[in-house]
Simulated scan of single mutants.
Amino acid sequence: MTLNNRRRLAAGATLIAALTAGVVPATTAHAAPAVPGATKATTPAPDMEGVVAALNAAMVEGAPGAMARFTGPDGVQARTVGVRDRESGAAMDVRARFRIGSVSKTFSSVVLLQLVQERKLELDAPVNRYLPGLLPDDRITVRHLLTHRSGLADYTDAMFEHTVPGFEAVRNRVFSYQELVDLSLSEPRTTEPGVAYKYSNTNFVVVGMLIEKITGKPVAKE
């Protein structure tokens, strides 16, 4: 693990600890039988000072700014530090648009499974049934995408081989789904379909293509 990764993990752990310090789930407070005359348990307030300390720690490590939002029994509390744009000096804003990165995979997976529930596609059907000719192997199913058993190479492996330079080279470029699939298909497949688990970001790209094909709407809208 690199030093930067350790620092990110440490900052993340600090933030999580700050958010959860003193926070008791509502179910815990009412788990025990009521005792006559006993004082009703209350949920302690979150340590928002600790949250700010964690955000400031992220800035010490080089972040231009950081933000956190806590949702609890008493509503929503947010804290921000630093700026979201070093050039303009615009302050960090919890209402601003920002990249959610891999969090999008969770949403996409849920939407795809909802479409399965609505009988608009089948998990064990070939991907090429819905996206004819997209993949070079008709044995690759929708389920293989979600379980990372498609064998499709991860297009990010070559892209981020030299992590920081690789990221900086593409961070402001917008790729189409087809471009990312083409990058994957230019590499050897990692396994035969269904044979073994091998994580690949390409699987989620195809999931996005399936959602848009079936619904006729952008993934973000769905």
Rank of each mutant, 00 (worst) to 15 (best):
G12E: 07
V35Y: 10
A18K: 01
R149W: 06
L185C: 02
V174Y: 06
A11E: 15
G65R: 14
R84L: 12
N5R: 04
V23P: 03
E222Y: 13
K120R: 15
L121E: 11
P33F: 15
A158G: 02
A78W: 00
N128D: 11
P46C: 04
V207C: 06
V116I: 07
A63N: 11
A26I: 05
D93P: 03
P136F: 13
R7L: 06
H144Y: 07
V207Q: 03
P188F: 07
S186T: 01
F167T: 01
A53N: 04
F204E: 03
L121H: 08
Q178N: 12
T147C: 00
R139L: 12
V164Q: 05
V35C: 12
N128Y: 04
E187C: 00
P132L: 13
Y155A: 01
R79S: 09
D182V: 07
G37D: 04
P126W: 05
E118I: 01
E118Q: 15
L113N: 06
E61S: 06
R173E: 03
G12I: 02
V76M: 11
A21D: 14
L145W: 07
A220G: 10
R129W: 10
G62R: 07
A96F: 09
P188N: 09
K120S: 14
G101M: 08
V142Y: 01
T2P: 02
T42L: 14
A45S: 10
T147G: 01
A29H: 05
I214L: 15
K40A: 13
E222N: 15
R84E: 10
S109G: 13
G22P: 09
R84V: 07
R69N: 08
D137S: 14
P126E: 11
T80E: 14
R86I: 15
M1D: 11
Y177T: 05
L183W: 01
V60Q: 14
L210R: 06
A17C: 00
I140C: 05
S88V: 07
E187I: 00
N201Q: 01
V174M: 10
T80W: 08
E122W: 02
E161R: 00
A58T: 09
V24D: 11
K213G: 11
A63W: 08
L121K: 06
L210S: 12
P73R: 07
L180T: 01
P64F: 05
Q114Y: 01
V170A: 08
L115R: 04
V207Y: 01
A54S: 13
P126K: 06
A125H: 11
F167D: 01
L55M: 08
V24M: 07
R139Y: 11
R189M: 11
A38I: 10
A153I: 00
L55R: 05
T20K: 00
M48I: 02
